[in-house]
Design a protein around this nucleic acid. Structure first.
Lengths: 214, 214
DNA sequence: GCAGATACGCTACGACCAGTAGCGAAAGAG
DNA sequence: CTCTTTCGCTACTGGTCGTAGCGTATCTGC
């Protein structure tokens, strides 16, 4: 999921190479300050004025780059989702546990939770944004499932796919189950995702899906 | 989940049967107006003044019943989830399918999606709100899983629980899996939940959990 | 170097909203 | 008929988002 981020994250008026260029250092400082402030104060406590002060920047500078607080925070967080990867740990169970652990780790941070849910919420009201979310965040994550299956099949743990269409649907359902369960536990139920929980969940998951030959 | 709602939903100062009683019609109008406004405008766009206007009521009337915007919105949404019920359809599979269908039906309405996501998003920013969501919306839903298990055990489809603690954890994981998967498919992936999908999902679910004797 | 163009920091300001206070009037309870 | 409580209304405080206007700093093109 590495190539997901789009552009250098500033959707505001792009510089056109004439006068004084925008300070790249300010961008970094602002994004970092946003992450920090969000972690410390939570969404409700975070104010644009505070972010500006932390970044050593005027509040107006923030608004020259991001049209609103929402966009700023989402951009500050979006980078994090590109880090997920599925490594070949030697067995399907281990692979599933590893990727669930990464996913859970990412979603355990309160800032990430707030930013992601804000994004989803806004997306539910704006079809265009919703499409972007799916193209840039949801779909890429499915590749993880596909790759995990491919690895398992290469290791002989799983019979190869016969029906292309059925396999595709199965990937959908697996993806929704993994992502949905972890998200629900962390974002809604508000319970932690421990190593033990991951193990139990992965075991159940492998029980549920036939086609594994181990 | 019918017997879940506590009191007539007004946690504010309860009437003590002396003077003019509170208008029940106003309550309904306010809650309905809240849901509508939340779906239309999102959390940020929803204002107490607007809700009051939509409900044909003074803003002060809102604050006489609910101490803050948070409480009002939680109450307005919680009602929707009180309608879920687990009926004894004769088999565990049928019971699961029935309750999933109800849940999916509820979450299929775009207004509900928008409103619920707005609530979750805000909850991730405000710990107090988050606790209320859990107490009033999440926890009560677990009763559905408990009751489904009890029914299955009474029918002899499932062995009775031996370890209380283990059973409790299993209920947690089942609940997160069902709710999370359906929510993710509808709210994030944006794909429909058909009868056929429900059937496949329920089948997988029963595969995953041992202890069923059929 | 020297213009022109643009970003920057600063201060001040408008707009909006959560939540409160106090009033007279309305509507039930006993 | 009286007493109690709710109701709508208006006005208010405090805080935040987001903008406007200004003088200054910094870079590009010539």
């Amino acid at each position: 999921m590495a190539p997901t981020t789009q552009q250098p994250a500033e959707p505001a008026a792009p510089t056109r190479g004439k006068g004084r260029p925008r300070s790249a250092a300010a961008d970094l400082a602002i994004l970092e300050a946003t992450r920090q402030a969000l972690a410390e104060l939570g969404w409700g406590g975070l104010t644009m004025g505070d972010v500006a002060t932390r970044a050593g920047v005027a509040k107006t500078t923030l608004y020259r780059r991001w049209p609103s607080k929402n966009e700023l925070v989402v951009d500050a967080m979006a980078i994090l989702f590109d880090q997920l990867e599925v490594a070949d740990m030697g067995s399907l169970q281990a692979d599933v546990e590893a990727v669930v652990a990464q996913f859970a780790d990412l979603l355990s941070r309160p800032e990430t939770q707030a930013a992601l849910l804000a994004l989803f919420a806004e997306g539910s009201r704006d079809p265009q944004l919703r499409r972007r979310i799916q193209e840039q965040i949801v779909e890429p994550q499915k590749v993880l499932v596909q790759q995990g299956r491919a690895n398992a099949q290469a290791r002989g743990e799983m019979v190869p796919d016969e029906d292309e269409h059925a396999a595709c649907e199965e990937i959908d359902i697996i993806f929704d189950t993994i992502a949905g369960t972890v998200e629900h536990r962390l974002l809604v139920s508000g319970r932690p995702v421990t190593q033990e929980w991951i193990h139990r969940f992965a075991t159940l998951l492998l029980n549920a899906f036939p086609g594994t030959t181990c």
